[in-house]
Design a protein around this nucleic acid. Structure first.
Lengths: 149, 149
DNA sequence: CACGCGACTGTATAAATATTCTTTTTCGAC
DNA sequence: GTCGAAAAAGAATATTTATACAGTCGCGTG
């Protein structure tokens, strides 16, 4: 349950201003996830979300992680979620556990890798698109290096 | 008082992990600023600080603001603080109200302007260094445009 | 099967933060 | 100076968030 719920949280805070965990709780309940505020507090920490700014809303972690190591987030996400990598021409297929694909997708997008044009995340699969086959190979190598340092 | 205090807040959260407004209050008191938690809550909002991430600490706004408009923060800071701009060769001298220079300095650094090598902020003056005189002129023009659109 | 272990969650509550309502301070016009 | 308006800050309090503790579930092992 957790991975799916966290994915929905990520999408939710990007679609609208979420100013409290109670509000988030109501939104999630409408989406079929009925959990307590305590659980959301834990989810928010695990996702690395950040609260503040002019409107005191929750924000995605990508920006915040940019501080120290730019790809620390990607690093963590790859280690945590990625289970398999394949390549077909300039396309790279990434596999994760169920519901985890969006989490890894966000991390990939946020890392702004030069050899990555964009991603489409399903439930447990991500299609990552490189400019050409050569750079797709570079991407595969980079991911493999990240997944076992 | 406020501008100076907010500058110190910015420096403080960059030097060490600050996990609560009470902790920040104690740190500021050691630095000669004796204010209540309510005031800090307001300062934090005005600075656009953000709290969260793995260690639930306060973080500077630059990263968070990168989301929407990259230079929205600079825009605001220039409008709010900048009072005068001069140029000498490749150096640009910016003036602000007392204690406000560090705030504008942080915004300038965060904006990563191509014609700006770096800044040194005093209390009410910033020395901004461009690669050469031509680009210093570009910088001056950009700042003037920002200060009265 | 019984046990222990680890991940996950809820409940209750402590801790932290935001806000409302006042008071104080600042500053410009007179 | 004195007045009034606006900014700044405090006190008290409401709201929000984190956490200690306990319970459940799934799973692998003796």
């Amino acid at each position: 349950m957790k991975a799916r719920r966290q994915s929905v949280i990520l999408e939710t805070i990007q679609r609208q201003r979420v100013g409290s965990q109670e509000q988030l709780r109501r939104l999630l309940r409408a989406a079929g996830f009925d959990v307590t505020q305590a659980t959301l507090s834990r989810d928010i920490r695990e996702l690395g979300l950040v609260k503040g700014g002019a409107d005191r809303a929750y924000q995605p972690p990508a920006a915040a992680a940019t501080n120290g190591n730019p790809s620390a987030l990607l690093n963590r996400a790859v280690g945590e979620y990625l289970t398999r990598v394949d390549r077909v021409q300039q396309l790279v297929i990434l596999r994760t556990g169920p519901g985890q694909a969006p989490l890894l997708g966000v991390a990939l997008d946020g890392a702004r890798l030069p050899e990555l044009v964009g991603t489409i995340a399903g439930d447990d699969t991500i299609l990552a698109i490189a400019p050409d086959a050569r750079r797709a190979r570079v991407l595969v190598r980079r991911l493999e290096r990240l997944s076992r340092p």
